[in-house]
């Protein structure tokens, strides 16, 4: 297709960029640093600009503290602010908009066993991420911030991925045989 309107040209040039994971990686990295520069007076910790697990924890525990009067632990930035960090809500909205606009929204269902496995997986991943102090994303931010433990987390995560892949392959082979 030959671009004819100026907006088409822009779209034509931007589309491969917007669709490339490395572009998003760069965006998250720079914006996480920017949001720390902007908001850190509200409270720490550092290298906390974006994290799916920690920000979910802050959101759930923070709202529970506000609405139900509980006293659950959360990061100082979410404790001090009028409302906890909203990044996860943002990701849900942004991804929903994108899926709708680009007609990629599709209901996918699973068996009750799948639901239980995913529920348990989500539960365990959150506990494990909290023990470390971040999901894979905050691990990357912490590594960029100079935290050697976060780098170790990434290395062992890669090993875990390899172990999981081998396990899944073995299981698939067994089912084929």
């Amino acid at each position: 297709m030959v671009p004819c309107k100026p907006t088409d040209t822009i779209r034509h040039t931007l589309s491969p960029l917007v669709r490339h994971p490395a572009f998003l990686g760069a965006v998250i990295g720079v914006l996480a640093a920017f949001s720390q520069a902007l908001l850190i007076s509200a409270g720490g910790p550092e290298a906390y600009g974006f994290c799916v697990a920690c920000h979910t924890r802050d959101l759930v525990n923070g709202l529970s503290n506000i609405l139900a009067g509980t006293n659950l632990a959360l990061a100082p930035i979410s404790k001090n602010a009028v409302l906890p960090v909203m990044s996860v809500v943002g990701v849900l909205i942004g991804a929903y908009l994108s899926a709708r606009v680009n007609r990629e929204h599709k209901s996918k269902e699973g068996s009750p066993r799948d639901y239980f496995a995913y529920f348990l997986g989500g539960f365990l991943v959150l506990e494990l991420a909290m023990i470390f102090g971040g999901c894979p994303y905050r691990a990357a931010l912490r590594t960029g911030y100079g935290d050697i433990f976060a780098l170790l987390f990434i290395v062992t995560m890669a090993l875990g991925v390899i172990a999981g892949t081998v396990l899944a392959q073995k299981r698939a082979e067994k089912e084929d045989a």
């Binding site: 917007v18 669709r19 490339h20 994971p21 572009f23 998003l24 990686g25 965006v27 998250i28 914006l31 949001s35 902007l38 908001l39 850190i40 007076s41 509200a42 600009g49 974006f50 920000h55 930035i77 979410s78 001090n80 602010a81 009028v82 409302l83 906890p84 960090v85 909203m86 990044s87 996860v88 809500v89 943002g90 990701v91 849900l92 909205i93 942004g94 991804a95 929903y96 908009l97 994108s98 899926a99 680009n102 990629e104 894979p136 994303y137 990357a140 995560m157």
Partner: peptide, 27 residues
């Protein structure tokens, strides 16, 4: 900053979510 935290993180999340859906971003 205590008032800026929710809206700034929300906007950041929307941008990340949009781009993540486009690119299939996954560590």
């Amino acid at each position: 900053a205590i008032y800026a935290v929710p809206p700034v993180t929300l906007l950041l999340g929307i941008l990340i979510g949009y781009l993540a859906q486009r690119s299939g971003f996954c560590s």
